[in-house]
Write a protein that binds this DNA or RNA. Structure first.
Lengths: 141, 141
DNA sequence: TCCTAGATTGGAATTATTCTTGATATCGCT
DNA sequence: AGCGATATCAAGAATAATTCCAATCTAGGA
């Protein structure tokens, strides 16, 4: 069992974030994302958050998610035209979509990798954000 | 000037595609995409196609685009939650979104690149599709 | 030519998300 | 503690892209 992960999941925000007022709703939305890192949709987040905040509205969940994204505490992930999903892993990383199970796995870059190593970037391009999505199957191991 | 490109753009379908009935609508949708490779949305495709087929409906444009995608003649490209865009480049490639101009550039992989060299894939993962999107700025050269 | 499967159309329906508005809560200051 | 300014919340309405539906149409084969 990964205690490091578990401990983080049990807390609310890792540290204060400048300019972000920490309300019970935002705290709980964040807590829920940390508690189960399965890339839930806003709807799923709403269901989970309602366990503790039964009166929270879906609109508020959307607001909280947007705020947390804007402050860099979580990331919004899009697959095709499906509903957005949310992910508390703010490291640069990609996602692997297992078609069979519908699960999503974070994909880390191998250490020391540089985008320009494998992509033919336009000269002078300054990259601000990367989104890498793989779709496929996990062969039975 | 790139004659190869220009010639392809002027034609309709490059070759017959098994199981695909080539209707005037599909032909024109394809022609429009080849004629201007700027990753238009379904709406933009609709406007362009109407020049020659004034009665074509948006639903038909969606149908044609879907069919062409299903047959591997074009690709559907999604950025965030924006409308889907369509692209006649069916090679494996990524996209660079220039925030300033709103333009989209195809990004090719460097030759001989293997994704597994750069990404920490889950063991036994079989990749069926890759989507790489970069957002950033093109520095004034 | 006639039949049939598939294609097209226009409009209605769907769905995720955003917007609006009024009510609440919080912050900084005295 | 009290007050005004500001931010947040909630509920439902509104939006926008896309899909669905039912009714024609069309092309190609028997």
């Amino acid at each position: 069992m990964n205690h490091r992960l578990h401990d983080r999941a049990a807390n609310s925000l890792p540290e204060a974030c400048p300019g972000l007022r920490m309300t019970p709703q935002r705290q709980e939305v964040y807590r829920v994302l940390m508690g189960r890192r399965d890339h839930p949709t806003a709807n799923e987040v709403h269901s989970r958050v309602k366990k503790r905040l039964p009166n929270i509205s879906l609109a508020t969940v959307y607001n909280c998610l947007e705020t947390l994204v804007d402050h860099g505490l979580i990331r919004q992930v899009n697959f095709e035209r499906e509903s957005s999903r949310y992910c508390p892993n703010v490291n640069e990383h990609g996602h692997f979509h297992d078609a069979a199970s519908g699960t999503i796995h974070d994909i880390e870059f191998k250490p020391g990798v540089n985008l320009a190593d494998f992509l033919d970037l336009p000269p002078g391009a300054v990259i601000e954000d990367i989104e890498i999505t793989l779709r496929g199957k996990l062969a039975a191991s």
